[in-house]
Design a protein around this nucleic acid. Structure first.
Lengths: 191, 191, 191, 191
DNA sequence: ACTATCGGGACCTCCCGTTGTT
DNA sequence: AACAACGGGAGGTCCCGATAGT
């Protein structure tokens, strides 16, 4: 990662937080700049690609932060079943702790923009891919065959993505707890 | 459902289609009105609650249409495992057929607006609830214990929701096929 | 006055009240109709001249109501000095009692519209003329020479009009009390 | 007063002129921008508080211009009686010269908005206060006792305010001439 | 790398008046 | 007299991007 000015970094961090809560279209450049305290005049110097570039960098940042968190949880639970339950608990307590305002940091952007901006769509796809790879590698390390591990990782990823959506809508963590319990059965190693 | 004018109905149908592709914030009232051919002057006559009310009605419409489709698929497959696979095929062929522009009709709205409009959040929650209930009842009818049927229905719902997100982002139906195959294992009745 | 339907009358009364507080431009036809409970469909049957006609009739109504009040106060105080003080007290207690929202019922319309609608301008002029005449006749009856009585009536009218403006703006009745006391000196009969 | 761009200044000047003739609600931002030649895109840069802020600044500008005029007239007439007559002549010739379109520059706004915008209400109250203070100080300098000078200033202010209203409505300067003559009697010093 | 502007268009909302029908 | 629906435009606000100057 290249060294970057504080203004530039602040802008990306603020953008990531706002995109998570409001999505891309509903988040104005003005709001991002105001909340980040970054000056308006140099925005297009830092981000020649405009709002779209900022969005893509914010998605990448949020994706790598989440990657770190997934990695930390997996590191504490070699057993896939326990790891899956731990992930569910981590995310559901986040969600409830933010009064259901902070779900998956990139899903909203992914959905809104996958038909409108290929830059943002690809940025999201890269992030999803990195999360998937991490889960798959963990399952392989735990003894699953590579192909099955890939499918299991995908199921886990999809389920939790969906759980975020429904949990926010229902304002309830039931989706996470029920989903995690069943996922634990599926990803268990051996018979 | 009350009788309603053609204009009003057209507006809702068009809104539902656009919300599915672009989300709420990115869809302008002007665009909806133009594409639906509905007159501008009577919009607030038909929808005193403005864009929010229209959004809520569009969500409800999309939800009930999807409900009918789920019902039709389930009616053709009494076996939960086969039903789940059929659902996955239905949706993944939709998605690919629309060049990955038409995913779940309400997820985007649910995510964008669950922290901003309680009217839209609730409209989405009602729809998710109706889909869940239908799946659960099918699993109960197939022999699952009610509590487990509920959890299975939730897992299926969350997984497919997430599969829609990731499939659109990756422009690939892999999420659907891999997810559906594993879900079929979990929802299978007996051993 | 011709017999008129209840709807029609309600509309005028409601319009008069709203014009007093908000003025003509800021008061929407929709608001008038909603608050009066009158049906929208027959508005242009009752008022072929539209909003302008309604405004003119509301001005006339408010004017004649005020005329009655002026008449009542004058009837209790033959002495012009006492009459003027009593008028000041009446109006200042109205104003304070409505939390400074209800001043002279027609001044706002008169000012906004005197350069825009000659119908409304004239309606207001007629009302001002009727108030002036009543004051002048009272002063004549109290012994003032007709010409001087006319000038005194005009001074009183202008002063109280201005007092309404400034009192609303300052949210204070000081304008009324100070003005009335000095006016009482001027209109006193004899030497 | 801070240095300001020409666009910003033009906007305020134009707004002041239009508010004087049409009032606040009847004057559209579009009209102000068009007539002032100011660019639309930077309006919210110059006036973050929107139309309300512009209105308040226009009121303040009009108020201080009027203050200068009052000051000039008073400076030419040490005798209160003569000063009052001169003020009446100044204003009535203005009014007639503009074909009764330009009265007191802030009264209309004061009336319309005193129940709707406390920002505008206060801006008007400040202006009225400054006018009153100037008249009162002049009367004190001419020999009136301070308390009486304050009351006289108020009477003069209210009377001329009211004269503006009625003169515009009647399209006649009679209110000014008759009112000024009587006011001159009241404010005369000594016996 | 930042300031102060500008450009032009889109946002949702609401306006007043007018249909045709009952 | 009242209904449901329409027509077209204007309301104030805010958008993202660009510019000239320093």
């Amino acid at each position: 990662m290249p060294r970057m000015s504080e203004s530039r970094e602040n802008t990306i961090v603020t953008a990531a937080r706002l995109l998570q809560r409001q999505g891309y279209a509903a988040t104005g450049l003005t709001q991002i700049l105001e909340e980040s305290g970054a000056p308006k005049g140099s925005f297009y110097f830092h981000f020649p690609g405009g709002k779209e570039q900022l969005g893509a960098e914010a998605v990448a940042l949020a994706g790598s932060e989440m990657n770190a968190i997934i990695g930390a949880v997996l590191a504490r639970h070699a057993d896939p079943a326990k790891a899956v339950v731990a992930l569910g608990k981590t995310w559901s307590s986040w969600l409830a702790g933010s009064d259901y305002t902070e779900g998956c940091p990139i899903t909203t952007v992914a959905l809104e923009q996958s038909s409108q901006s290929s830059i943002l769509r690809q940025a999201c796809a890269v992030v999803f891919g990195s999360w998937h790879r991490q889960l798959r590698d963990h399952f392989v390390a735990a003894g699953h065959a590579p192909v099955r591990a890939g499918a299991l990782a995908r199921l886990v990823l999809c389920s939790f993505e969906g759980a975020f959506v429904i949990a926010r809508s229902e304002r309830s963590t039931a989706s996470f707890s029920e989903t995690a319990r069943l996922l634990a059965e599926v990803v268990a190693v051996g018979v």
